[in-house]
């Protein structure tokens, strides 16, 4: 009853892989969009937890957000601008002269973005230290707990974005192959999302805390 027959068309035999570089797929961008979806879902869950937690008990403690947060926000927004400018320049240059590696000076804006990103993370740490100096720790109040949690999770995701940018930079600096446009685009998209997420979190914290 088990019929074992030979296949109708013999499968293609193994041929030596071609040496040419494959065209870049759009997968990196799809992946970032999926990442954006899942990160948004996580923060949505935490937001609902925050709303439930605040309305459920009278122990919510309001406090003044450290003003440095607004400065950090500015830094982060600027980093998005520099990155977007870098992306446009590099993509446009690659389009003009074919698949050539951009000259190093075109990467300057990328280095600036990296620096601004690091500066933002350091600024967030300063904000934590300021809060801690006021005696507000993770376990002090549900409001401070959510503050630390949101900023820490956002910071971790942002560091992930920095690693992604470093990877793109590394590929740009390698003198071979075409410009990794999709990877650059994906990293830029993710970075912009980190901006949007931070602005959302800041608004949420401003309203609730």
């Amino acid at each position: 009853m088990l019929t074992v027959t030979s296949p109708p068309s013999s499968p293609p035999r193994v041929s030596p892989p071609t040496a040419t570089q494959p065209p870049e797929s759009k997968a990196a961008e799809t992946g970032v969009w999926m990442g954006i979806a899942t990160i948004s879902m996580s923060f949505a869950a935490l937001t609902s937890a925050m709303v439930v937690r605040q309305s459920g008990a009278p122990d919510w403690q309001h406090f003044q957000l450290p003003p440095i947060l607004y400065f950090n926000t500015l830094i982060l927004l600027m980093s998005s601008l520099t990155l977007e400018s870098a992306r446009r320049r590099i993509t446009a240059a690659a389009g003009q002269v074919g698949s050539l590696v951009p000259p190093v000076q075109r990467l300057a804006e990328l280095y600036l973005t990296l620096t601004l990103g690091l500066l933002f993370v350091m600024g967030q740490v300063v904000a934590w230290r300021q809060l801690a100096a006021q005696g507000l720790f993770l376990a002090t109040s549900p409001s401070s707990a959510f503050f630390y949690l949101f900023t820490a999770l956002h910071g971790l995701h942002l560091l992930g974005g920095l690693v992604g940018l470093l990877y793109v930079l590394h590929r740009l600096r390698q003198a071979t192959g075409p410009v990794p446009r999709t990877a650059l685009g994906a990293a830029t998209l993710y970075w912009h999302f980190m901006d949007v997420l931070w602005v959302y979190l800041l608004a949420l914290l401003t309203i609730r805390v």
């Binding site: 923060f43 869950a45 937690r53 376990a139 549900p142 707990a145 949690l149 999770l153």
Partner: peptide
């Protein structure tokens, strides 16, 4: 994406003294 933050909250309640 929802279970992971829930687990983080649980871990914080257990080890960091929060009250989620």
């Amino acid at each position: 994406a929802v279970l992971m933050p829930a687990c983080i909250l649980l871990i914080l309640d257990r080890v960091a003294g929060t009250s989620f």
